[in-house]
């Protein structure tokens, strides 16, 4: 039938020119619009969050915390005692850091962070977690064979250095304080912060090179 054919052709034409978003994009759009309509989240909240985390908040905040701890013994002590409270000195209080624990590397101990359950991460001071942190492989192997995983990151640990793996939860997230490299005496807080890498604060890097990365 001619009518059927032309309708069918029109349908196909629409399909071909359709710019429907992908399935997951539509699912998220659906939830977001319902959540806003029902007043569960404010209209600009999601966009503002995306902009902040895509462009502004990176591991720089964590690096500033580490640099401050290297320079200020009192701050260092307070950071290890109660990190969520101490980082308020730098204005970094935030919901995701409500329960934050700082763990310091020493000559005898290396700290490494994972979330075996999902991907809990102190993103308000470290930005978005790297993709490997979210991978099933890292989540499983970091606790099972941390030395092997570290060696794959290029970290060669001496036998007398113990590895402690901290498993993050929704209630408690971790920040590793790497050791201050030799040769940085007299450096400013800003210069020190520039050499602190994201991976060193997750514990998948141990020695910090003196050139800013």
């Amino acid at each position: 039938m001619a009518t059927f054919d032309s309708e069918n052709a029109a349908h196909l034409h629409r399909e071909l020119h359709s710019h429907l978003p992908s399935d997951p994009a539509l699912r998220v759009k659906t939830l977001e619009s319902l959540a806003i309509e029902r007043g569960l989240v404010a209209p600009q909240t999601v966009d503002a969050w995306v902009e902040a985390y895509s462009e502004h908040i990176g591991p720089k905040r964590g690096a500033q915390v580490v640099a401050r701890a290297w320079l200020d013994a009192d701050f260092h002590a307070r950071l290890l005692e109660d990190a969520a409270e101490a980082i308020k000195d730098l204005g970094f209080q935030g919901s995701a850091t409500g329960h934050l624990k700082a763990v310091a590397n020493t000559d005898r101990q290396h700290n490494m962070v994972v979330c075996t359950l999902c991907s809990c991460y102190p993103f308000s001071i470290l930005g978005m977690s790297p993709s490997w942190y979210k991978s099933a492989e890292y989540r499983a192997r970091a606790v099972r064979e941390p030395r092997q995983v570290l060696s794959e990151f290029g970290v060669a640990l001496a036998d007398d250095v113990a590895v402690r793996v901290w498993d993050s939860t929704a209630e408690l997230r971790y920040l590793v304080v790497p050791q201050r490299p030799a040769g940085t005496q007299g450096w400013s807080e800003e210069a020190l912060a520039a050499i602190v890498t994201r991976n060193s604060m997750i514990g998948t890097q141990r020695d910090l090179p003196l050139e800013a990365s």
């Binding site: 997951p24 995306v50 995983v149 990151f153």
Partner: peptide, 27 residues
């Protein structure tokens, strides 16, 4: 997979697709 960041590589976008960021933001 477990490579440290290459300091010489151009910065990577944090998310592959906007919906990924939006989903995390909404959660």
């Amino acid at each position: 997979m477990f490579q440290p960041d290459d300091p010489l590589a151009p910065p990577q976008p944090v998310f592959d697709e906007p919906w990924q960021a939006q989903a995390l933001a909404l959660a």
